[in-house]
Design a protein around this nucleic acid. Structure first.
Lengths: 223, 223
DNA sequence: GCAAATGCTGACCATTTAGTCAATTAATTA
DNA sequence: TAATTAATTGACTAAATGGTCAGCATTTGC
């Protein structure tokens, strides 16, 4: 028996009708499955059949919602970018560099630990030279994303709030390190005796990253 | 007209005979081509045809030297690992942490800038959960590689030569940051106005990484 | 209720591609 | 030089897989 979302969560995000609801549900299931399969297999290595299986739908249904594999892949990439745009805001939330940078690192680390798939899909796409996303889209997204942060870092440097390091290379360092915990999850797990990092270890890793970065640019990491 | 290596470089690495020489030459060409194609397309996305074309040989010849695509891929991975083992030595060359760590970072950065393909193949393999390399090989390689460094870092920490940071997370940070310049080359290029980092920029990036890391663990980076 | 619209799906097809192989050429050795 | 061994390669095959489609099922609007 099918139970409507409207019934289950009355008043919460009411959806017009059953068809729209199913559409929402199934396309979301496909996207979620696709994110995982693309992350683990890459674009070429992923099969629509495997995505369909993981989503619990027949393959033809995947093609009903997304004309081509490429369309689906693009949708997954767009969603990843969307999340990262929000992270970026965290950076400009405080005028105290120690607080802003700590928060940014923490939020990126949390995301790497809890949802590593998106980062993996992104890494794949970049390593291969953005064959699907394309350079224009990449440039458009990255420049906005980066500019605000580098400007802020430059300002802090000019004000003497942080040491005068080149903001680009500092940013790369933060991105690289935080996303490493998502992209290289497997390597880290193997090095950790085939066990995923515990909550405690995740906290320790996050704090270590924050400490080294802050100290590295002349800030005293708060205990 | 075929010119023997013996003729071209008399006395340099003399090879027994023409057949052995050709074997050396062609299999090297295939491996070099494969490294590039696997880096840019991933295992599944790479075709033996493309590798053959890049190596300037017919496809059937590739299969003559390497039975399967997987064999070839494994060979490429082994070569990457071999190079990294040498890097690891640089780390244990000095007892002064500032020197050892600087040298290690510098050597990894140089490698990322000059030969990014190997790192990309490795990143791909790890992101996908080492489907080809396998967990046992990965564990065997990584544990040796890591243990020596973490032991050294722990010793320095105990001796008060560096601040007491967890050596694992410090190492991850160094790996992540240095390899980022290889793996995310494309992203960096796009952010740099579609131009690869100049020698000057490469130097600046390397120095920034060294400065932040050293300062981050309580060392004064030498100017 | 009933026609239209939307969603669903098994069966199918065209393409791509790893790997094979038999025939050919070139180098080596005795 | 003749026999042996190694290298080469065009043509082929089998399997995998993205995408199609016709027919069926369900929901919706009137």
């Amino acid at each position: 028996m099918y139970v409507s979302i409207k019934e289950t969560f009355p008043g919460v995000k009411p959806i017009a009708n059953k068809k729209a609801e199913i559409r929402e549900l199934h396309s979301a299931a496909i996207i979620t499955a696709a994110e995982e399969v693309f992350a683990l297999k890459g674009f070429k290595g992923a099969t629509t059949q495997e995505i369909a299986d993981l989503a619990g739908l027949p393959k033809a249904n995947v093609h009903y919602y997304f004309k081509t594999k490429k369309d689906l892949y693009n949708k997954v990439l767009e969603d990843v970018v969307e999340v990262w745009k929000k992270d970026a805001d965290a950076f400009n939330q405080s005028d105290d560099p120690a607080i802003a940078i700590s928060n940014y690192i923490r939020s990126k680390m949390d995301y790497s630990f809890s949802k590593p798939f998106g980062s993996k899909v992104w890494a794949n796409e970049i390593i291969h030279g953005t064959p699907v996303l394309g350079d224009e889209k990449l440039a458009r997204f990255l420049s906005i994303w980066e500019k605000r942060k580098t400007i802020q870092l430059s300002r802090w440097a000019k004000q003497g709030k942080i040491l005068p390091v080149d903001p680009h290379y500092l940013l790369f360092m933060i991105w690289a390190t935080t996303q490493h915990y998502a992209d290289f999850e497997h390597q880290i797990r193997v090095l950790n005796g085939n066990k995923s990092l515990s909550k405690k270890q995740q906290k320790a890793a996050t704090n270590t990253v924050i400490e080294i970065i802050l100290r590295g640019i002349g800030l005293e990491p708060g205990k």
